[in-house]
Simulated assay, not measured.
Amino acid sequence: MLILNRKIGESIIIGEDIEITILEVSDGRVKIGIDAPEDINILRKEIYIDITEENKKSLDIDSNVLDILKKI
């Protein structure tokens, strides 16, 4: 993990086309802006985890349905 200190208005560049800018720091929270190409998905980690778990659940349901259909 790379750890950097940044001040308001300063940025971090990832690759050639992603820029993360510190917009505000207040009450222990940091507001950031992310400039990236439209084809790059940007999700909060907790949302990403929720989506991944739901996808896994749907795969389990599908395999159960296939087992039932095979018996018919």
Rank of each mutant, 00 (worst) to 15 (best):
I49A: 10
K45H: 06
K45R: 09
T52E: 06
D50P: 04
I22S: 00
I42A: 10
D50S: 09
D62S: 13
K71S: 12
I68N: 02
I20E: 01
L43P: 09
K56C: 01
S63P: 00
L23S: 04
I61A: 00
K56H: 00
K70M: 07
L4N: 08
K45A: 05
I40S: 03
G28Y: 01
D27T: 09
E10I: 08
I40Q: 03
E38S: 10
D50R: 06
D39T: 05
V30M: 13
V30F: 12
L4R: 10
M1G: 15
K57V: 01
E38D: 06
E54R: 01
T21Q: 03
E54F: 04
I3A: 11
V65D: 06
D17L: 03
I34Y: 14
G33T: 05
N64P: 01
A36E: 01
L43G: 09
P37T: 04
E19D: 07
I32K: 02
K31Y: 04
N55T: 05
I68V: 12
N55R: 09
I20Q: 00
E19A: 12
N5Y: 14
M1H: 13
R6N: 05
I12K: 02
I14H: 05
Y48H: 07
D50L: 07
L23M: 13
R6I: 07
I47C: 02
D27K: 10
G33S: 11
Y48R: 09
L66H: 01
L2H: 09
I20P: 00
I32P: 00
I8W: 14
T52H: 04
S63G: 03
D50Y: 02
K45G: 03
D35F: 08
V65N: 08
S58M: 12
I68F: 07
A36T: 04
E38N: 09
G15S: 09
E54D: 08
N64I: 10
L66G: 02
I47V: 15
M1T: 13
L23R: 14
S58T: 07
Y48G: 00
S11K: 15
S63A: 05
I20D: 00
I12P: 01
I3G: 09
S58W: 06
M1A: 15
E16H: 06
I22C: 05
L69A: 10
I20S: 01
K70E: 11
K70N: 12
S63I: 13
E19W: 05
K70C: 02
E53A: 12
S58I: 11
N41C: 07
E19I: 12
I34K: 11
N55I: 13
R6L: 15
D62T: 11
R6D: 00
I72S: 04
S63T: 10
I72P: 01
D27I: 10
K70F: 07
E10Q: 15
I14P: 00
I42T: 14
N55Q: 06
L69S: 08
I68A: 05
K31R: 11
N55V: 09
N41E: 14
R6K: 15
L59Y: 02
V65F: 07
D50G: 03
S58V: 06
